[in-house]
Each structure stands twice: as C-alpha cells, then as structure tokens.
Design a protein around this nucleic acid. Sequence first.
DNA 1: ACATACTGTTACACAGTATAACAAAAGGAG
DNA 2: CTCCTTTTGTTATACTGTGTAACAGTATGT
Lengths: 203, 203
Amino acid sequence: MPRKSSPVNIDPRVKRTRRLLRDALVLLILKKDFASITIKEVTERAEVAYITFYRHYESLDQLLMEVLDEGLVELMTHIEALARQSDPSSLETEGRLIFEYIEQKADLFRILLKSQSVTRIRKKVVSNISTIFQKSCVPLERLGNQVTINMASNHIATSLLSLIEWWLENNMKPSPIEMGKVYKSLIIDSTVGAVSSLSAVAK
Amino acid sequence: MPRKSSPVNIDPRVKRTRRLLRDALVLLILKKDFASITIKEVTERAEVAYITFYRHYESLDQLLMEVLDEGLVELMTHIEALARQSDPSSLETEGRLIFEYIEQKADLFRILLKSQSVTRIRKKVVSNISTIFQKSCVPLERLGNQVTINMASNHIATSLLSLIEWWLENNMKPSPIEMGKVYKSLIIDSTVGAVSSLSAVAK
DNA sequence: ACATACTGTTACACAGTATAACAAAAGGAG
DNA sequence: CTCCTTTTGTTATACTGTGTAACAGTATGT
C-alpha cells in the first residue's frame, strides 16, 4: 500500500493508477449492476495489473466509497451553502439550484443512487443531508422536541433523495424550475407545517 | 427442478425442503449481511444437501424474493384494506394500525428493509405502495395533473418506507399511537396540501 | 546516475458456484 | 404390500474470482 497522506506530494504513478481505477469503475457501474462487477474487470478496463488493485484498495466497496466521496463532498458543501442562506422566501430558488446541480452531475447521481445497493452508502448520504437540515433549518429548532426534529430531518433527507431518484428515472422531465417549486412545497413547507402541527398537539 | 404449479398437490418432500431453505435464509439474514451469505451456509443450516438448493432455486436472490413475497402479499392486502376505507377523519387510526401491524411483524420488516441491498426489492415495494395510494387516495385524483400525482404517490410510498425504517432503527420508540399522528400529519396531509398548492399555482 | 518506489508477470492456495452421474430414500397408485 | 416414480444425498469435477507472494522491470526525483 503506497503512502498517501504524509507527504502532500503524491507519486504521479499512484495518482494515475487510482484515477484509472476510479474511471474504470464508473464506466462499469453505468453499464451494469455493481454487485456483478469483479476486480478483474476493473483492472482490465483500467489497463493495470490485477494485483495493482490490492496495492491501493482492500475491496471494490472501498474504491466505490472513494468515487462517491469525491462527488459527495462537493454535493454536500453545495447543499450546505444553499441551506445556510435559508431565507424562507428563496426556498424555491434553493430547490431549483439543487436540481440544476444534479442535472449537471447526472452521471454521478445515477451511480450514487444505483449504489444504494450498498446500503451503507445510502445511510451515509441520508445522515449527512439530515444533519445539514437539522443545523440549518431554523424553524425546526424552535418547534417540537428532539425526537420529532430527528424524525423530520430524516424525513427531509430521505424524501429529497427519493425525489431526486424519481426525477432521474423520469429523465429529468419536469424542469429544475418546476422541481424547485416541488422541493419547497412537498419537502420543506410540508415538513415544517407537519412538525408545527404535531408540536401544537403535544402542548 | 421439481414441478410446482400444475398439480395442486405438491410433493411433501418438496414442500419440506423449500420451507427449510426459506427458514434457514431468514435466520441468517437476521444475523449477518445478505451479501455475505453463501448457498453452502444456507443448505448447511437447513440440513439439506448443497445441490438440493439448485433443484429449487437459481440463486439466493430468487430464494430471498420468495421469502419476501410471502410477507409482502400479506402486508399489501393489509395496507390496501386500510387505504380503501380512506375516511379522512380516520387517517390517524389508519396510521396507528399500520405501525401496530409492523410491530407484530418486526422481524419480517427488518429483513425487508435490510434487503434493500437488493434494489429491485425496494423498487417493487415502492411501486406497490405507490399504486395503492394512487388508486385509493381520492383527494389526489381531483387535484393536479398525472405527473404531479405520480410524484406525490411516489413521495408517499418512499416516505412511509423511510419512516418505518427510521422507527425500526429507533427500536419502535414512539408508540404506534404517536406514529399514527405522524403518519397523518407528515405523510398524508402534507402531501395532499402540497399537491393542492402546486396545482393552484398551475392554474 | 542512483537509490527508491511503483508496476507487471507468473504462480499458487483457497473458497464459492454450478453441473453431472449414480446410489439411497420417500411418496403415491394399484 | 409392492412397484414405479420422484426426490434427495453423495461424490467428483470444471470453472471463476479472491487474495497473497516472489521476483523482474520501469518510472521518479534528487
């Protein structure tokens, strides 16, 4: 296993090999089911020796994680930045920007959602998005108890993922502008409204 | 492959073997990840010969499908029956009954949700629930266009699944009575409200 | 140009899949 | 109960993919 972190300068051969492996995996996932992909296939497509795979990764899962983390970090900072400016009047715009971003990176998202086969990844994504909304969605903090808030942010995260999945399967048919309205209405406003009504009953 | 359908009388040996294999798989799934389960393990736990597996199933996936279909048919008829009597005033009761049912069959549901690893199964479940709500949820039929209705029923189905998943992971902590309120407020009322507001804008 | 680090080739042990042939046991019809 | 059919068990085998090892070859940077 070549060293990776200590010196900031990574051997260009290592960089190249890892890029080849990541790209090969991406191409394969877009063509077939992740579960049916073998290490041999990846190394052949990447045109590196079979054993070279093991010199960088322990399993295909780990390689997949790296691929997704690459894009996921980017997505998260993007969504987080959008959520930070949670001006209620601009929620529709926030939604539009999310779906425009997805439109750009459609390939990555198809892979990410296909890879829900690997349940851990879905949970990680849900957990990340959930935390973001829990921190930034101001109205939720005031209303309701902790359990309700956990439930609500989990609801927002999973609903958003499902909506994205549905949208990609429908070939991104309603435009991002329309989806922005849907996002505001179906995901955010709905949830905030439900939490407040649930909390009102609790009092 | 022993014949199964033509005569209503199934050989008792076949019945026994298939039951042993199903039970063995269920026990194993509750203990470890489905992806790491081998056919050899299943046959050993079931105390049948290795090759006997292939005399009844083509793959572990197929066996898993049979196990889930068994319980899924039951769940679907249950939810459908509840949704049929969609008296708006009894939505809370409908929700309570769903979560009470899940409480009873917790093991089956843990397996079902763990098996989302097999993406096909999640899609099947979502599609089934989605269709049920699309048919029975009267308010949605009047409001909005077909795309919106598809999206909304998909939203209801995935949200319900996610909520069930969250509830099981939280050791079924808020009582079914509380979850009934959540179901009405967060899943149904929210969605209906959102659809009507989206449709109003469209006009 | 030289030591270092990475990559490629070949070989091997191992586990799981999938099939085949034959023997043994259990079920059903007369 | 007996006989024929069907199912199950045993053993053997080919195949594929995993994961590791040793050694030779190639690229990197100082």
